[in-house]
Amino acid sequence: MLRAEKLSAGYKELHILFEINANVERKKITTVVGPNGSGKSTFLKSIFGLTTIHSGRVIYNDKDVTLTPPHERTKMGIAYLPQVDNVFTNLTVEENLKIAGYTLDNGEYKDRKDLALDVFPELEYRMNQKAGTLSGGERQFLAIATALIRRAELLMLDEPTAMLSPKFANTIFDKILELKDRLGLTILLVEQNVKKALEISDNAYLLISGRVAFEGKAEELLDHEKFEQLCIGI
């Protein structure tokens, strides 16, 4: 569904990623892990067009989208949820959902909203509450719900469980699995909770210093004898 071909990217003159080759399979969960500063978040941002691409290509559904602006990628079905600032805190939950459906007609918006609330029924009781007053976990629910309303096919999540309690983190992982199994979404996940993320993933990439150090099945990485050393970059 999505391919990065020899992708080198960063921020203006700063080079962070070096010739990354990666393949995100349709209706699978692919997790990118790696030590701090390895370029995981930059990888997601590069896929979404928020960094400086120095060379290489991003192919989505057989189309070269390397230079496509982010809002166009949204229309193509790619949703990127940053770690923070992924909802409008001054708007209510309902208004956040409405904005997500800004380009949809009323009938379609209602269908998508019903679907999103079916996956995240917790939000139904918070509709008139400002998003800024939600707990961290509920905010992640809302952020993912907005992506569902936007008809996302590929969901890119940047550390969705960061700063969440273990209980809420587990719920998020369960929801991610549900999105894949029930709605057939393709998920590209960056996570600091490596073990748990790999347990629900199909494929995995390990990035170290902006280069791919491992690619393969998630369970292979989990079972790797040097798994822990690899994850902290030794």
């Binding site: 982010p70 809002h71 949204t74 229309k75 990127y80 600032d85 992924n86 909802v87 409008f88 805190t89 001054n90 708007l91 208004e95 904005i99 997500a100 800004y102 380009t103 907005t146 936007r150």
Partner: peptide, 13 residues
């Protein structure tokens, strides 16, 4: 939404 976070509003279309 645009006043609070224009980049996110743009992502939303």
């Amino acid at each position: 939404a645009s006043m609070e976070n224009p980049a996110l509003a743009e992502i939303m279309g």
